[in-house]
């Protein structure tokens, strides 16, 4: 457990804990993957909320700002970085 996390701290999606939000700054370099993410609402400048993670390093369950829920594999999540954001529950 991270002892103290500040809003604005730089993280990747993978480092997020359930219930935390991330304001996205960087998407993966690979265009095909970042296109796939953008069309689901995982876009620069927008905030995604981590709802939960699957067992044993499985995918992440996210909710995007425009209300789309997404299952995202860890290797993709590791390539999305941004700032820790506070989201109203």
């Amino acid at each position: 457990m991270t002892a103290h996390r500040n809003s604005g701290q730089r993280l990747t999606l993978l480092e997020l804990q359930s219930g935390e939000g991330l304001r996205i700054v960087n998407l993966p370099n690979e265009t095909e993957l970042s296109t796939q993410l953008r069309v689901l609402g995982i876009r620069e400048g927008e905030t995604v909320l981590l709802l939960r993670r699957a067992l044993l390093g499985g995918p992440l369950h996210l909710r995007t700002e425009c209300g789309v829920e997404v299952a995202l594999g860890r290797s993709a999540a590791a390539q999305v970085s941004g700032e820790l954001a506070v989201i109203a529950p």
Partner: peptide
């Protein structure tokens, strides 16, 4: 080599 990472919409 590896399957593309899972990127899947979870519809309501």
């Amino acid at each position: 080599r590896k399957s593309l990472p899972l990127v899947l919409e979870m519809p309501a």
